[in-house]
Design a protein around this nucleic acid. Sequence first.
DNA 1: GTCTATAGCCAGATAGAC
DNA 2: GTCTATCTGGCTATAGAC
Lengths: 218, 218
Amino acid sequence: MGRVSFREQVLRAREEAILVSVNRLLAEKGFDVMTVDEVAADVGIAKASLYKHFASKEELAAAAMIRVLDRALAQLETQQADTRAAPFDQLKAATRWTMQVQLAGEMPSLPAQNSALRGALMGNKVYLDRLMQVSDLLGVWITAGQKSGSLNAALPPELVLYTIFARACDPVLGLLKAGGNYSDEQIIEMLLVTCFQGLAAVAAPAKTPRGHAAAQAA
Amino acid sequence: MGRVSFREQVLRAREEAILVSVNRLLAEKGFDVMTVDEVAADVGIAKASLYKHFASKEELAAAAMIRVLDRALAQLETQQADTRAAPFDQLKAATRWTMQVQLAGEMPSLPAQNSALRGALMGNKVYLDRLMQVSDLLGVWITAGQKSGSLNAALPPELVLYTIFARACDPVLGLLKAGGNYSDEQIIEMLLVTCFQGLAAVAAPAKTPRGHAAAQAA
DNA sequence: GTCTATAGCCAGATAGAC
DNA sequence: GTCTATCTGGCTATAGAC
């Protein structure tokens, strides 16, 4: 039943090409500054043709956001295959992946900011569904990590989740890259240290014996 | 020589009112979404009058950014008066202040993002000068903190600086506030923990005695 | 479905009277 | 300096031929 005509394959390929362009432009300039003319020019087709595939600029961007969430889901499922990895390391690996995507210029800035896009995305069922799937997968690891004592159990799980999401659009990555003094890998490893050392359970002070592990927020 | 006419005082007051509005709208919607019409309406004057005070939308925003940097400088200088405070705590206090400003809706999103504003700001001498002043003040504490062993000396000072700047526009603050489960103070203290525990020197593992003193964030 | 051409709108900036 | 009214340009979206 899944047979698709050659014609349809060409269609899909073109839509994929469009989304690649949108993804890159969205990462580069953001939704508000990106224009549909630019997208059309980048893909190499007429603007009117774009609107045959996507009904509006918002829908275009939403499709790109959904695509990156799908890539994230694929990454997380790949990681899940390694059942020996500790939750803490799974979370770190997931964050490393988002940082790599960002430094590659392929991370459309998530609309935690106040873009005109936000409203449209909050009404998009597919987008919200994918976002929840990603959150749930990460949530499992977060809960497990807090239970096992590797993650600071005094922090609300949502805070950990949001913090990991926020690293995907952390401006520090771009600033350090612009400085030119470190390789992408060095930048990522350094930021992973500061991020996950911050989320980790507090190490017991060296002087006092018997510091119980998990506690402590302030 | 510093005498100003009454007329000029009124002028200054109006410009201050304009900048307050711009500051708030910039924090709320960002440069690209904010319109000059909105600003004029918010201040309660005609758009053309705005342009008598500021030559362009970019200049308007730049003035607001400079104003917030001036507020930051005042805060830092106040802190400097307390010479007993450790550099690590000075940095934490400075970051707490930026987080308070952000949660109060008064932090215009810094243009690490790719706004149309960025180019204009990079060509604005006054803005760059103020930014450098703030960076220098923080830089002194960063260097001192690394020397004293409270800050992770393996991290480039620029990374620490950028990380502190980035906390001023951290989307996690807004997301947690939107959740409604925590007070502003709780949110700030939790994020200060994750931020500065991440930047702190690595605590000696609990098992090995003889961890030197200064380390540790929580 | 692809194109060219254009409608319609809105935002930044200005003219000119007061 | 403040206003009302207007210009100008660019952007989203569509019409209509092929």
